[in-house]
Computed example of a mutant assay.
Amino acid sequence: MSEHNREDKSEQEWRELLGDEAYYVLREKGTERPFSGKYLSCDKEGIYRCAGCGQKLFDANHQFDAHCGWPSFDKAIQGSVDYVKDASHGMIRTEILCSRCGG
């Protein structure tokens, strides 16, 4: 298991590691304001990693502009994410979580 595995850190340790904004998004299922994130632009090359544990999640070659205000990808790196049904807010959505740390 990774040193960042979701079972081996207290929520206080996660908060200290991530800071307030990243903690809100990664541990409390929050979102950043649409069109405000530094990774919204899809004109970069490279690999997007989990802010919690560093696991590789998405290749920038699979990013596209969905005009929704958040980075969008049509393919994750195999095995890197878990897809979870989210029925909150009166609609069915798919939540994407890091398969290593749950962020």
Rank of each mutant, 00 (worst) to 15 (best):
F73I: 00
R27D: 02
L97I: 13
D20N: 14
R93G: 06
D8L: 04
I47S: 13
E11R: 08
C101N: 03
Y83P: 02
K85W: 02
F58P: 07
R100Q: 12
D20F: 10
F64E: 03
Q78H: 09
A51S: 15
L17V: 12
S36M: 09
H62I: 11
M91N: 00
D82Y: 05
Q55D: 01
G102I: 08
E7Y: 07
I92M: 10
G79W: 10
D59R: 07
E3F: 06
E21T: 12
F64G: 04
M1Q: 11
I47A: 12
C68H: 01
T31M: 08
Y48S: 15
Q78N: 14
Q12K: 08
L18M: 08
L17F: 13
F35S: 05
G30W: 00
N61W: 14
L97D: 15
G30V: 02
Y39G: 14
N61P: 12
D43L: 12
I47P: 14
L18I: 11
D86Q: 07
A87R: 03
Q55M: 03
I96P: 03
M91T: 06
K75E: 02
G103H: 06
I96R: 07
G79C: 07
I47L: 14
R93P: 02
F73H: 01
Q63M: 13
V84G: 01
P71R: 01
Q12T: 11
S41Y: 14
S72D: 00
A51G: 15
F64D: 07
G30D: 00
L17I: 14
E28D: 00
L26S: 04
L18Q: 11
L57D: 04
A87W: 00
D65S: 03
E21P: 06
Y48A: 15
A87N: 01
L26M: 11
S88F: 03
C50L: 11
D86V: 09
L17K: 13
Y39R: 14
E16N: 15
C53P: 10
S2V: 01
D74P: 02
E21M: 11
E13Y: 06
I47E: 14
N5K: 04
D43S: 13
E11L: 08
G102W: 03
C50D: 10
C98V: 04
C98H: 04
T94L: 07
R93H: 02
H62Q: 06
D43Y: 07
K9Y: 13
V84H: 04
P34E: 00
E11I: 01
S72C: 02
Y23Q: 12
K56N: 15
R93K: 04
A87T: 05
E95D: 05
Y83W: 09
G79F: 04
A60Y: 14
E32M: 02
C42A: 15
A60E: 13
Y48F: 15
P71E: 00
L97S: 12
E11G: 06
F35A: 05
Y83S: 02
G90C: 03
C98K: 09
T94N: 04
C53R: 09
D74V: 07
Y23I: 10
G37H: 10
F73S: 00
A60Q: 05
